[in-house]
Every structure is written in C-alpha cells, then in structure tokens.
C-alpha cells in the first residue's frame, strides 16, 4: 500500500501544473488563480469551435438578413416594413399562421398531459406505446401529408366510411384547407410535446401525490393542486417549443393546405417574396417579422411562467 502511494505523492509537484507557492512567479500564479476562480482558464478554449460555428452559421447570416431587410430596392430603410403592413395579402399571413400554430400548440400540450400523466408509472407495454406515440417524429411532414390526403381526403377512408354509414351525403372537406394543415401540425408536433411533458412529469416526486392522498385529496384534487402547479412551468416551455415548430410550418401548408388562400402562412409569403418576386429585402423583412412574432408569443408565455413556482419538484430531502 505504502509502496504505491509514495510515487504518486512525489509525482504531483513535478507534474505540468507548477505549485502556486513559488516566490518568483507568485504574482502571476495568483492572477491565474483568481481568474480560474471566476471560471476563466485554458479549458475555455474548448468553446472556440462552437462559438465560431454559431458566429459563422447563425449570427452572421442572421445579421445579414436583418441588414438586408433595411435595404429595400426602392424607398427608405423601412419601406418593406411599411409595405408589409399596408398590404393585407402580406399582413394577414401573421394572423393566418397564428390561428394555425397557437391552437395546434395548445392542443398538443393539452393532449400530452393526460396521456403522459397516465404513462408516468411503469406498466407492461409502456415502451411499445411510447414508440407508437413518438413515431410521427421520424416520418417527416411529407409522409404525414400524404397519409392525411389518403385518409381525410374527399375519397379517403374517413369520408368513405362516413358516406357508407350514412352520416353525411357529401364528403366532408378536411384537406387542402385549414383543417388539413392543422391536423398535420398536430400530428408532427405531438411527439415533441408528449416526450417533453412526460419527462417533466417523471421529474415530479410521486410521493407528493401519495401524501396528498393520505391528506384526503381525490385524484382530481391531487392533479389540480399538486401535479399541475409543479408541471405548469414545463408546460409553458413545451408550449413555446411546439409553437415555434408550428409557426414555421411550410411543407404541410402547401401539401395539405390551401397555400394561395386560407393557409397562406407567413413562411409561404417569405418564399414568394424571395423566389417568385426575387425581392430579397422583402423576404428578409418577412423573416425578421416572423422572428419578432415568435419572440412576442414566447415572451408572453415565459412572462406568465415567471409568475409560477419553478423550484424543486422533490418533496424534501432524498
């Protein structure tokens, strides 16, 4: 034992880290020590590749886009912004997109809660069920759109069943309009919402609900008074993420929507400006406005979240 301990003990001072107490370099070492205490040391260099990556692939193009939006082909720096808000065809895309993405995100979060709540514990077939619920992530929007067209289209199974049963005389129109896009967003967004809500729920100490039960709370009171308040901050975060995903909807708005009319979402307007009219400043303006609207919604949600209890979800000392 002592034979192995001795070399390692003498090995330390001869290692690459010079001992702090040596008089000639005392001041320099002290400075380095002070910096290290604030987290400034050589390991920070490891951040350089990531920082460079963000700078080159995100910040520069982003700044370029913002700059471009203030350089319209004609008029002052705000001309494209003015045009966007005066042209109803452009302006209304904000409302169209919000009216799709807000309810879809809300529905996704709301639908995830009871399912995830039921799936907190361990039971047989949990993995299979989770897989089934999460599979839409892997499918991609286009496959989902095709499925929707086949299923909900005028000659799809859904309408044929309705016609056969006699519930309706004309096929219900559920594709190439608002509802097609709505369903598509819900289907692709649900797995994200579900996985997030499930992980937030699993983080809540299960003994809290059991404690509430021994105090006389029935299942609804346990959910309403204990689980939901602890889950709410997570729901806010989940809502933001699913909302952002839904807000930038493009493929399904074209494939299962009505891209010239009721589902002319803001990303379609940006695409038109850039690749149909070749008005890059206008496209950049729309992109900037898209980001602003998203930021406003997220800020509102996070502002509400800040009012909630966001601390530990454990019941005490583990």
């Amino acid at each position: 034992m002592s034979a192995t301990a001795t070399p390692s003990r003498t090995g330390d001072p001869t290692g690459d880290d010079p001992p702090g107490g040596r008089a000639p370099v005392g001041v320099r070492v002290a400075l380095r020590h002070r910096l290290a205490e604030r987290g400034v040391d050589r390991q920070l260099l490891l951040l350089v590749p990531a920082a460079l990556f963000v700078l080159v692939l995100f910040i520069y193009p982003f700044g370029y886009g913002v700059g471009l939006s203030f350089q319209p082909t004609e008029g002052g720096p705000f001309a494209t912004y003015q045009e966007f808000f005066t042209d109803a065809y452009l302006r209304d895309t904000i409302w169209t997109t919000l009216s799709l993405s807000l309810p879809a995100a809300l529905l996704n979060v709301a639908a995830s809660v009871p399912i995830a709540y039921r799936m907190r514990g361990r039971f047989r077939g949990k993995r299979l069920l989770t897989t089934v619920l999460v599979v839409p992530i892997t499918l991609g929007t286009v496959l989902t759109a095709q499925g929707l067209l086949n299923f909900l289209g005028p000659t799809g199974w859904f309408n044929r069943t309705l016609l056969a049963v006699g519930l309706t005389d004309d096929p219900i129109r559920l594709t190439n309009n608002y509802w097609g896009v709505f369903f598509s967003i819900v289907i692709t967004g649900f797995p994200f919402a579900f996985l997030l809500v499930l992980s937030y729920l699993s983080g809540i100490d299960p003994t809290l609900e059991r404690a509430a039960a021994t105090l006389g709370a029935n299942w609804w009171q346990r959910f309403r008074r204990i689980t939901l308040p602890l889950l709410a901050p997570g729901l806010a975060t989940t809502f933001c993420l699913t909302f952002v995903l839904a807000f930038s909807v493009f493929p399904s708005a074209v494939l299962v929507g009505d891209p010239a009319g009721t589902t002319r979402v803001i990303s379609i307007a940006a695409y038109d400006a850039a690749y149909v009219q070749y008005d890059y400043p206008m496209a950049a303006t729309i992109a900037v406005l898209m980001g602003l609207v998203e930021l406003l919604v997220i800020a509102a949600v996070l502002g509400w979240r800040a009012l909630l209890y966001t601390g530990s979800t454990a019941g005490g000392k583990g």
């Binding site: 100490d205 059991r210 509430a212 209890y309 019941g315 005490g316």
Partner: peptide, 11 residues
Amino acid sequence: MVFQNYALFPH
C-alpha cells in the same frame, strides 16, 4: 402519514 422524504408540497 409522514413520509421518509417528508413529501412536502414544494410549491
């Protein structure tokens, strides 16, 4: 019931 980890409602 008093639980081992107390199970106090943290909020």
